[in-house]
Computed example of a mutant assay.
Amino acid sequence: MAKATSTAKSALASLAILVALPALAEEAAHRQLGPHVHGQGTLDIAIEGNKIEMELIAPGMDIVGFEHVASTDDQKAAVEKAKAKLADVLNVFKLPDAAKCKTETANVENRKETHQPGEKDDDDDKPGEPQHSEFHATYTITCGAPDSVTGMETAYFTDFAGGQLLNVNVTTTKGQTQAQMTRAKPTLDLTGVM
């Protein structure tokens, strides 16, 4: 009976990990402008079995060099080019070849952030109006040899000139860890988290 309870607890923990990222994505879709820090993005990673779920949120300034909603043809083209680059997740976030990973899904959006009524911004003092844009990407990756996922290297900082720092949150069945990837250290050690 104890083994069945342990298996049930493991299954519930696994389910919680897989459910967490969509909930975070939904929350991000509805969030209002909070502390806006250029140069800093967030990368959430959930790993279970052979599946890796990732969510990236980054200010528009970091990705395309402007934070307002694209209005000119050149700006719109820059947004589309950036979305295409971000959609190629295994080029932006490189996993070891030995892990035999492939992209199952990649969804990249350019979203508007809005002010709460009464808030002001240096760029525009009209509360409730869209002020900034951010990039939001979600990915599902499967790996043929998940035990070989011992690290990750990113081209994010070379692909996107404004990116300076990614705050990384990793969730696995073993627990949660936090790390940072930067221009000076564009790697993430995943040894022992599987």
Rank of each mutant, 00 (worst) to 15 (best):
A29R: 12
M152F: 03
T172C: 11
E113L: 03
G39L: 03
K102S: 13
H36M: 03
V79K: 03
D123R: 05
A161D: 14
L43K: 03
A20R: 11
I47F: 03
K9R: 14
A16Q: 08
P35M: 06
N107C: 10
V19E: 05
G162C: 07
P59Y: 04
Q75K: 01
A4W: 05
L12K: 07
P117K: 06
M61E: 15
L43D: 01
D122E: 13
A29F: 01
D44A: 13
F93K: 07
H68F: 00
K94P: 08
F157L: 02
F160S: 04
H36R: 08
P22M: 01
Q178M: 12
T187M: 10
T187W: 05
D125K: 06
A46G: 07
Q180V: 15
A70N: 04
K85G: 06
A29I: 00
H68R: 14
I57A: 10
F157R: 01
E26H: 14
N107R: 15
N91C: 10
V19N: 07
D97A: 15
Q176R: 06
L190I: 02
K81S: 14
L165F: 07
A8P: 07
H68Q: 14
F135W: 04
E27P: 06
A46Y: 00
P35R: 11
N91G: 12
L165V: 08
N91D: 15
M181W: 01
H38W: 05
E48Y: 03
L21G: 06
G162H: 11
T150W: 00
A82L: 08
I45S: 00
A70D: 02
T191F: 02
S71Q: 00
M1F: 09
K3P: 05
N107I: 06
D189M: 07
V37M: 09
G41D: 08
M152E: 00
Q178K: 12
